[in-house]
Amino acid sequence: MDKKQYVDKAIHAYYERHGAVSERLVDAILYSVDGGGKRLRPLVLLDLLEDFGVTIEPGHYDVAAALEMIHTASLIHDDLPAMDNDDYRRGRLTNHKQFDEATAILAGDSLFLDPFGLMAEADLADSVKIKLIQALSQASGTFGMVAGQMLDMTAEHTQPSLVDLAAIHRHKTGCLLTYPFLAAGLLVEVSQDEQALLEEIGQLVGLAFQVRDDILDVTADFETLGKTPKKDVIAQKATYPSLLGLDQSYHILEDSLNQALALVEKLEAKQAKNFVKLRALLERLRLDG
Score class of each variant (00 low, 15 high):
Lys3Val: 07
Gln5Ile: 11
Gln5Ala: 15
Tyr6Phe: 13
Val7Thr: 05
Ala10Asn: 05
Ile11Gly: 00
Ile11Thr: 00
His12Phe: 11
Ala13Leu: 11
Tyr14Cys: 08
Tyr15Met: 10
Glu16Gln: 14
His18Ile: 10
His18Thr: 04
Ala20Asp: 11
Arg24Met: 14
Leu25Glu: 12
Leu25Asn: 09
Asp27Tyr: 03
Asp27Met: 06
Ala28Pro: 04
Ile29Trp: 03
Ile29Thr: 06
Leu30Arg: 13
Val33Asp: 05
Val33Asn: 05
Val33Arg: 12
Gly35His: 05
Leu43Val: 08
Val44Leu: 10
Leu45Cys: 05
Leu45Ser: 05
Leu46Asp: 00
Leu46Asn: 03
Leu48His: 01
Leu49Ala: 01
Asp51Met: 09
Thr55His: 12
Thr55Ile: 11
Ile56Glu: 02
Glu57Tyr: 07
Gly59Thr: 00
His60Ser: 01
Asp62Ile: 03
Ala64Cys: 00
Ala65Val: 02
Ala65Glu: 07
Leu67Thr: 13
Glu68Ala: 06
Met69Gly: 08
His71Ser: 02
Thr72Trp: 12
Ala73Leu: 03
Leu75Thr: 02
Leu75His: 03
Asp78His: 00
Asp79Gly: 00
Asn85Thr: 00
Asp86Ala: 12
Asp87Gln: 00
Arg90Gly: 01
Arg90Gln: 06
Gly91Phe: 14
His96Pro: 02
Lys97His: 11
Phe99Tyr: 15
Asp100Ile: 05
Asp100Gly: 00
Glu101Ile: 01
Glu101Asp: 07
Ala102Lys: 13
Thr103His: 07
Ala104Gly: 02
Ile105Val: 13
Gly108Trp: 04
Asp109Lys: 06
Leu111Gly: 09
Leu111Ala: 09
Leu111Glu: 03
Leu113Val: 13
Leu113Thr: 14
Pro115Trp: 02
Phe116Ala: 04
Gly117Ser: 12
Met119Pro: 01
Ala120His: 15
Ala122Tyr: 01
Leu124Ile: 08
Lys129Pro: 02
Ile130Val: 14
Lys131Asp: 11
Ile133Arg: 01
Leu136Thr: 03
Ala139Trp: 07
Gly141Trp: 13
Val146Lys: 04
Val146His: 03
Met150Val: 15
Asp152Ala: 04
Met153Tyr: 07
His157Pro: 07
His157Asn: 15
Gln159Phe: 09
Leu162Asp: 04
Leu165Cys: 12
Leu165Val: 10
Leu165Trp: 10
Lys172Pro: 03
Gly174Ala: 04
Cys175Asn: 14
Phe181Gly: 02
Leu182Pro: 08
Ala183Asp: 06
Ala184Glu: 10
Leu186Asp: 01
Leu186Lys: 07
Leu187Asn: 04
Val188Arg: 14
Ser191Ile: 07
Gln192Pro: 01
Glu194Ser: 12
Gln195Leu: 15
Leu197Val: 05
Ile201Met: 12
Gly202Phe: 08
Gln203His: 14
Val205Lys: 05
Val205Ile: 11
Leu207Tyr: 11
Ala208Thr: 05
Ala208Cys: 00
Ala208Val: 01
Arg212Trp: 13
Asp214Gln: 06
Ile215Ser: 05
Ala220Phe: 05
Asp221Leu: 09
Glu223Pro: 01
Lys230Val: 07
Tyr240Pro: 06
Tyr240Trp: 08
Leu243Glu: 09
Leu244Gln: 13
Ile252Tyr: 13
Leu257Gln: 04
Leu257Met: 10
Asn258Met: 08
Leu261Ala: 15
Leu261Thr: 13
Leu261Gln: 15
Ala262Asp: 14
Ala269Ser: 14
Ala269Ile: 08
Val276Glu: 15
Leu278Thr: 15
Arg279Asn: 13
Leu287Ser: 02
Leu287Trp: 00
